[in-house]
């Protein structure tokens, strides 16, 4: 983890510290975006856009030790927005998934199921399982009770399970 002092400097307007912070978390941002968008170029563009937004909103990061989660959340919100816009564009042009990601059925089913979740559920699945953020930290950042977040995550998991289960059923039939 990055030193708190550097992040504090970044928040208070030190550009060099900001770049160090972004450099530390760029992989987390990129991977989150890639999992959402399934396209390397778009994931890179997202990293660029998240850098812009993080810079503009940097004074809003009140808890320096949660910098990574803060950046990942900006990424998730940006990607969710992009995905919703794309749903419409896809009518015309289906973006090819990156070949390197393989095409295993299970993964596709799971990813489809995750993308069909409610935005807030989706966000939790990513933060919890992709980045292993604690409920305590999420509770502080999202201003919601830990119990509320837990209930939401279990609802999401139940939905995913149902989707995966249904798929098994089809295979047997």
């Amino acid at each position: 983890m990055l030193e708190i002092a550097i992040i504090e400097k970044a928040i208070s307007g030190d550009d060099e510290a900001f770049l160090v912070m972004m450099g530390t978390y760029k992989n987390d941002i990129y991977k989150t975006a890639l999992a959402f968008l399934k396209n390397k170029e778009e994931a890179l563009e997202t990293l660029q856009e998240v850098t812009v937004r993080a810079y503009q909103k940097r004074h809003q990061l009140r808890k320096p030790k949660y910098a990574k989660t803060w950046l990942v959340r900006i990424t998730i919100h940006y990607c969710q927005d992009l995905c919703k816009q794309k749903k419409r564009v896809y009518v015309r042009e289906e973006v090819e998934p990156d070949q390197a990601l393989g095409d295993e059925t299970d993964r596709i089913v799971l990813e489809e199921a995750i993308s069909a979740l409610q935005p807030k559920e989706q966000e939790l699945v990513y933060l919890k399982y992709f980045h292993g953020i604690t409920f305590r930290e999420l509770s502080v950042l999202m201003k919601e009770k830990e119990s509320t977040l837990k209930t939401r995550l279990y609802t999401a998991l139940a939905k995913l399970k149902r989707e995966l289960g249904e798929e098994e059923h089809h295979e047997k039939a």
């Binding site: 550009d15 900001f18 770049l19 972004m22 450099g23 760029k26 992989n27 990129y30 991977k31 890639l34 999992a35 390397k40 994931a43 890179l44 563009e45 990293l47 660029q48 856009e49 998240v50 850098t51 812009v52 810079y55 390197a100 990601l101 393989g102 299970d106 993964r107 799971l110 990813e111 699945v125 399982y129 992709f130 995913l160 995966l164």
Partner: peptide, 29 residues
């Protein structure tokens, strides 16, 4: 499955330089 899903993305490699470019470009912007 969720675990494998995460691992898959952990394995994906992107050139460090291109990630740095994206950050740098966003910063300039």
């Amino acid at each position: 499955e969720i675990n494998e899903w995460k691992k898959r993305y952990d394995k994906i490699h992107m050139e460090e330089a291109r990630l740095e470019d994206a950050v740098e470009f966003g910063f300039h912007q």
